[in-house]
């Protein structure tokens, strides 16, 4: 369907006023109110009055459209009507009875046509608004879809950190001749890790046991690489293994502890992962005895701690019932604590 180009507002106003003036002239053909000059003049004055006041209100930054337009129509239009009445109608009539009848008549007409103009304007505005709203909705949906795709990609990149991958490959390369069975075990751990990363990013939910198995693969590899510098314990009560957990909540916390706490510490340190459930709350702690986070810890753009990502996942899975908090340990290092509703 071809769409008509919208009229510029001022031209639309003139058109509307002309139509009203001519309509009144035709309606009153044969009586003194049928004068074309009078009807057009009054109509233009009322229209220009409303339009002028509306422009003025917009200029001074009147915030609400809903109030502005009725106000402009009533005061501006009424003012224009009064002016017309004083200019043209009053000089013609001198009988007070006739005068008040004419005044009433003009008032009714002003109210009627202002109302008509108002309804017309509102309908047009509502239509335009609906159109922009539709366009905005469309744009928002597209943006969300794009962000989702980008987010998945970023999440994937963040999981398989290139330094981790290439250093691990280099280690396997180094071990193949000297310690072939260790090389083989390490390759198996890496394979499991990569596979579960790829599968998991598509899964909606996993279990605490599975998630910690993934963490264990990661730590096995790192312990081979870092040697004495990394010690770790995982404390998971048997009964909690089957607890459901959104994927990729835990892994980023462990990677942070390694990358920011233990790897940069020349002496290395200890990582401790602990899960416990009590009174409806599942609590998982990842604590390291590493460098800790300095207030201005240098974070490379795009390589943040991934914590905002974890928080977003918490909100989408649990609303406001879950939390992630980070604390500095008095003995050095950082403790990350996840608290989830235990269902």
């Amino acid at each position: 369907m071809p769409r008509l180009a919208p009229l510029p507002p001022f031209a639309a106003l003139l058109l509307f006023c002309t139509a009203v003036g001519l309509f009144l002239t035709l309606l009153n053909r044969g009586n003194p109110w049928g004068d074309v000059g009078l009807n057009l003049g009054m109509s233009y004055l009322i229209g220009l009055g409303s339009w002028g006041l509306d422009c003025l209100l917009t200029r001074i930054g009147w915030p609400s459209t809903r109030l502005r337009i009725p106000l402009a129509l009533l005061c501006g239009g009424g003012g224009g009507g009064l002016l017309g009445f004083l200019l043209w109608v009053r000089p013609l009539l001198d009988d007070p009875g006739q005068l008040s009848e004419a005044g009433l008549r003009i008032m009714v007409l002003v109210l009627f046509f202002s109302g008509l103009g108002f309804i017309l304007l509102y309908t047009l505005m509502a239509l335009a608004e609906a159109r922009t709203q539709r366009a905005e909705d469309q744009a928002r949906i597209e943006r969300q879809q794009r962000e989702l795709a980008e987010g998945r990609l970023l999440a994937l990149q963040a999981q398989i950190e290139p330094h981790f991958l290439f250093n691990t490959l280099a280690t396997i390369h180094g071990l193949i001749e000297a310690r072939p069975s260790t090389a083989q075990a390490m390759l198996e751990s890496l394979t499991d890790l990569l596979r579960s990363h790829l599968d998991r990013s598509r899964d909606a939910s996993t279990t605490l046991g599975q998630e910690l198995a993934l963490v264990r693969h990661y730590l096995t590899i790192l312990q081979l690489r870092m040697g004495e510098r990394l010690r770790y314990t995982i404390d998971l009560p048997e009964g909690l293994k089957g607890r459901p957990l959104p994927p990729l909540l835990l892994q980023p916390l462990v990677e942070n502890a390694i990358q920011h706490g233990l790897e940069p510490a020349p002496a290395g340190g200890e990582l401790r992962i602990r899960a416990e459930a009590n009174s409806g709350c599942l609590r998982i702690e990842v604590c390291d005895s590493g460098l800790g986070l300095r207030e201005a810890t240098e974070v490379k753009p795009g390589h943040g701690l991934g914590l905002s990502n974890v928080r977003e996942r918490l909100v989408s899975a649990y609303g406001n019932d879950a939390s992630l908090s980070l604390c500095e340990r008095p003995e050095g290092g950082v403790c990350a604590r996840l608290e989830l509703p235990d269902v």
Binding site: E295, V299, P301, C327
Partner: peptide
């Protein structure tokens, strides 16, 4: 580029120092 802007607020909450 690494930033030198503030990344963490350290606030005391009870016994803990929250980051």
């Amino acid at each position: 580029s690494t930033t030198h802007y503030l990344r963490w607020f350290k606030v005391s909450k009870g016994e803990e120092v929250r980051l």
